[in-house]
Structure formats: structure tokens, C-alpha cells
Design a protein around this nucleic acid. Structure first.
Lengths: 208, 208
DNA sequence: AACTGCTTGTTAAAAAATTAACAAGGAGCA
DNA sequence: TGCTCCTTGTTAATTTTTTAACAAGCAGTT
């Protein structure tokens, strides 16, 4: 099978978000041009993205939201609940612990920190452990995904621990220095960069 | 001048992050191949990105970190402090209010919410107003950027208010329905989507 | 049951982004 | 100063991504 671009994967995820919204609004069917308008891309691209994986639509009609939703979830591997841990339970980390990830079939099973007053407590009913317990918990609970929300100078240490414990997917809010094993995927959320991009767009103008 | 791809802009921002880190480690010069390794791209691309805007390097030597940093900051429009507001001061919003954006020359000037017990308070010394005061504050303070961290069902309302008040750049944590004026730029941070992409990568494997 | 209208899935064309290659030209050293 | 080494800036080639176009075919209607 041909290699699937990661951009296609990201868009599949966006299609899910769109359909969740449309479903709430009472829709049962959606067309490629609806999803396209939502995501500001062409309708061809929506169909192209889906065609990598099969035929999900009805010609002349569109896509059953229910059917397409469950198909995309299967493609993305979202049928089973995935366990997630969060390293760093400061401002960002504790906000994430309260985020309703369970709605999306992700389960936060633990938080980790080094501050003594945090360790042993529960936040949003999720236990907080010392960072040194990370490997033990990950192995015991079979965790696949880790989120890094620690200060910059602790990030590399935490990444090593996560990789050592068998975590395969890492979402980090701070830059971490590679290289990483080829079966470990690291992606970033960089708040300052997002604002910087906006700054450029505002300054230089152009089409949205 | 040729149109600059947004991907190039995002990478410029990443180059800044890399150089901040390298500077802390005591480096004064950096080469395209260093930045390339950091960002997992080719060194050609680093040079290509920079060449859109001028010549910043010294042949045979590399780039002065100080000089390249200030050049990129100028390109991105980061010389002047930009004012930012945050709509929604719940879990995510209040975490953002505590984020050290000032290090990046962004200044959070106000938060907005509808919960009576929040309004009138200060968080991290930043005043919280009722959402209905958004337009007044934005105009008075000349705010350019807004962050949306409200629940899903309030997002469209907030976007309208922001656009009406003259905000030109919006960073949203929830899906908002367009269309938007062509001089207003909306970008997203979608936590669930990030995890979903990781889920796919883990499941399907392949190179990182 | 046949017809019309509309949207899909797919193929080919176009556009965009990335990489490779290399001439140009300082830096450092003898 | 002259020579060598090394990295930049740039052009051309390649690859990837997106768009456009259209045949195929189901739905709804007459």
C-alpha cells in the first residue's frame, strides 16, 4: 500500500471534528464539499484523502456521518481506549489533566512531577506520582502515549525516561533534542510559534 | 516578491527556538545543517527558507546566532510587543494566562469570561473582564491577537466578537465556523487531533 | 422502468515543496 | 599573500501534494 501523507491523517482527524459538530446540529449526511468548506480545502482533496482507505460514500448523496465517523476512527486506531500519561503537572499539565480527553477515547491514567506537595495527590481524580515512578506505571498500565509539559531544562530527561519505558507517541510542549528511535513519534505543540506565525500573517497580510 | 509558504514561516519560528536553546548552551554560530538536524529536515531547506528574505550567513562559516535571531524576529514582525487577549479563563485559559509569553514579546493584557466569580479578579496579575467588554478593551488597548479557550458552543459567538473588535489573528482551541474576513487569520491548536495523529502513527508504524 | 440530477471515486494535470548539486566566496592557516 | 577548506546562496531536478476533470452510478422522480 502506498504511503499515506501525515497531512492526510491530520485532515482525517479534522473531518472527525467537523462531523461531531454536524451531528450535534442534527445532520446525518455530509458531502465532500461540506467538509471541504469547513477545512478550507478543495472537495477533491477530501475525496482523495478518503480514497486512500476505501470507498465510504454513496454517489449522488454523500457520506453517512455515522458510517464515515466510525470508518475514520478505525483508520486512526481509535476503536480502543488509549492510555496517556502527563509529565509535568504545573499550569499546562494540570489544565490538560482536566481536559475531557475521554470523550475522544483517550484515558489519562497518571500525572508525574517532582514537587513533593503534588506527589501522592489526585487531580481530577488522577493520581500524581514522582517522575521516577514513570517507567513502573507505564509498564504496569501499558501506556502508549506521553505528554510532556515540564520546563525546558527537564524535557530531555523526561523524554529519555518515556522512551525507556516503552512509550511510542510523545506530544511535547517544549523542544526536545533527538534523535529518537524510529518507532517513537514525537510531535510538538509550540504556543510561541503559533503566535509568531500569526504575527507574521498580520504584519504581511495576504489571504487567510 | 514571491509568495512565502506558511510552512517556511513555521520553520523560521522553529529556527528561533533552536537558536534560543543553542545560545543557552553557549554557541555563537550555527550552520544550516545544525538547524536541519534539529528540525529533521534537509540543510538545503533551511538555506532555501532563509533565502526568501536575504543573505544572513557567512560562506564557509555559518550564521551568527545573534544576527540570524534578530533577522528572523524582524521578518516575523516580532520587534514590537504584541498585545494578546484570552477569551475563556477556565482550565486551558488560566494555564495560558500563566504561560511566559512575555519572553517571546507577547503581552497578555486581559482575560474574558462569563462566570461572575472570575470577573473583576486578576490572574497572574492580569484583569478578567466580562466577555461583553471585549470590544471596548481591544479597541482601547490596540490588541492584535486573541486566543479562544471557551467551550465549543460559545466559540462562534466569541469569534464574531473578536472579529468585530478588530482583532486580526486568532488562535483557537476549538473549531469555529467560518468564513472569516480575508484579513483575519484563524489557526488552531487541536489537542484531540494531535493525539489522534499519534494514535495512527503508533498503530501503523513507519519512520518517525 | 427509464430518466435526470448530483456526488462520488479516480485519473491526469498542475502547482507547490523539498532535495540535490554546484558555483561563489569568505575564513583560517602556512 | 596564496592556498585550501568549508559553507552559503541559488538554480535545476525531483518528489510530493493539490486541484481539475470526468466517467460511473445511486437516489429520487415521473
Amino acid at each position: 500500500m502506498k504511503k499515506i501523507p501525515e497531512l492526510t491523517i491530520r485532515r482525517l482527524s479534522h473531518y472527525l471534528r467537523c462531523m461531531e459538530r454536524l451531528k450535534e446540529e442534527g445532520e446525518n449526511f455530509v458531502q465532500s464539499k461540506d467538509l471541504a468548506k469547513f477545512c478550507k480545502i478543495s472537495d477533491s482533496l477530501v475525496r482523495r484523502d478518503l480514497s486512500y482507505f476505501g470507498e465510504f460514500g454513496v454517489k449522488g448523496k454523500g457520506y453517512s456521518i455515522e458510517h464515515l465517523t466510525s470508518s475514520i476512527k478505525q483508520i486512526l486506531g481509535l476503536e480502543k481506549t488509549r492510555k496517556v500519561i502527563i509529565a509535568g503537572v504545573g499550569k499546562i499539565g494540570s489544565a490538560l489533566i482536566n481536559y475531557p480527553f475521554h470523550k475522544f477515547n483517550f484515558q489519562i491514567v497518571a500525572g508525574f512531577d517532582i514537587k513533593p506537595d503534588l506527589i501522592g495527590n489526585r487531580l481530577n481524580n488522577i493520581p500524581i506520582y514522582h517522575i521516577n515512578d514513570l517507567e513502573r506505571v507505564v509498564e504496569a498500565e501499558n501506556v502508549h502515549i506521553g505528554i510532556i509539559a515540564v520546563p525546558e531544562d527537564a524535557a530531555n530527561f523526561v523524554v529519555e525516561k518515556m522512551i525507556g519505558s516503552g512509550i511510542k507517541g510523545i506530544l511535547s510542549f517544549v523542544l526536545v533534542r533527538g534523535p529518537f528511535p524510529p518507532d517513537v513519534f514525537v510531535r510538538y505543540i509550540e504556543l510561541p510559534s503559533e503566535l509568531e506565525v500569526l504575527s507574521y500573517l498580520i504584519e504581511k497580510g495576504g489571504a487567510s
